[in-house]
Simulated assay, not measured.
Amino acid sequence: MLALVDGIKGKGSKLGVSLPQDLTNEEAFLFKRLLDGPLKGAKVKMHGRTALPAPASDPMRIKDIDDARAIVVVASDTEMDVPIVNLRIKKAVSKRGAKLIVVYPEGVDLDRHPGTVHIRHKAGGAAAEVRKLASHELLKNPGGPVAILFGDGHGSEDINDLASACGDLAEKVGGKELALYRGTNERGALAAGVAGWDSLDGVEALLSWGPPPTAGIPSSVKFLAAWDHLPRPEWDGAAVVLPATTFAEQQGSYTNLEGRVQFLRPPIALKQPLRESWEVLQDLGVALGVGIKYVGISAIQREMALTPPDPEPAPTPVLIGPARP
């Protein structure tokens, strides 16, 4: 732990942090305290997240897909991105007769249904196609609720233009929207203010929590610390390697696509000397001079529930142009 502290303390913007997409809300809460304190200024990139910003209003519920009479899926291969939503869509179409429109450049699992209307387009053209849909025959008189589900096209779309187009379509056809976040707890990380989208290029110290950065470890890195449950070739040159828990050993909570908090109960008991991630973050905070002391994860959850919202929160980052993961 001391070697880790020496390598990351006081680095400011020269420190990069790669976060896992499945960090819990409790881990995000503690990590935010470090970002607001001794790690202030660090560049943060969440592994596997979309370019989608936090929702400006309450999204539609996942279960409402079942009752939709028309479903529009935009810029997402739902089978790979959001498998649970993919099953809901197929159930609504095959069992309940919903009409389905897919706007995506390539073939997808949903094409198996013979009634699927698939509008293919060149990369970056999703928003333009969505703006034509208000006059589509299937949406003129859908006969009930319309669900508009959209992703980020895995970096190929201008997300601001696409979100605006989907919002306009929802207003014109009386539909509801649901943004399709890929990250396991992307909604929770966004709410906590830690779902970073910073470039890690140029950082001199890197703390990689979970898998290595999608773009690889920057050549500028002089100090590398890895916190992972798997040995990987990328960690061969790491100055510090910390063992991490697996998903099956974690307790805490996630926030799902619609913003509902779901609690985890680990099926596998943690074995010493392995420690829970919140305990490691707490020790790191203490070593960095932050007064963090909790006797259990329930104490963290109580403080999270009592913490008032920021009266002047930082504005949601606006991503201009095509997103690059």
Rank of each mutant, 00 (worst) to 15 (best):
L2M: 14
L4E: 01
V17L: 13
V17E: 04
S18A: 11
L23Y: 04
K45C: 14
D64V: 02
D77E: 08
M80S: 14
I84P: 00
I89H: 03
A98K: 00
I101V: 08
I101Y: 05
E106R: 14
L110W: 00
R112C: 01
G124M: 13
G125E: 15
A127D: 06
L133E: 13
H136I: 08
K140R: 15
I148L: 05
I148D: 03
N160S: 15
A170P: 03
A170S: 08
G175R: 02
G175L: 06
G183I: 07
R187C: 02
A189V: 09
A189I: 10
L190F: 03
A191R: 15
G196W: 00
D198I: 01
A205P: 09
L206D: 02
T214G: 07
A215D: 09
G216N: 10
V221S: 08
L230P: 00
L230H: 12
P231M: 10
E234D: 12
V240P: 07
L264I: 15
Q272H: 09
E276A: 08
E276Q: 14
S277Y: 01
L281Q: 09
L284Y: 07
L284M: 14
L288V: 02
E303I: 06
P315T: 07
V318C: 01
I320K: 15
I320A: 14
P325N: 09
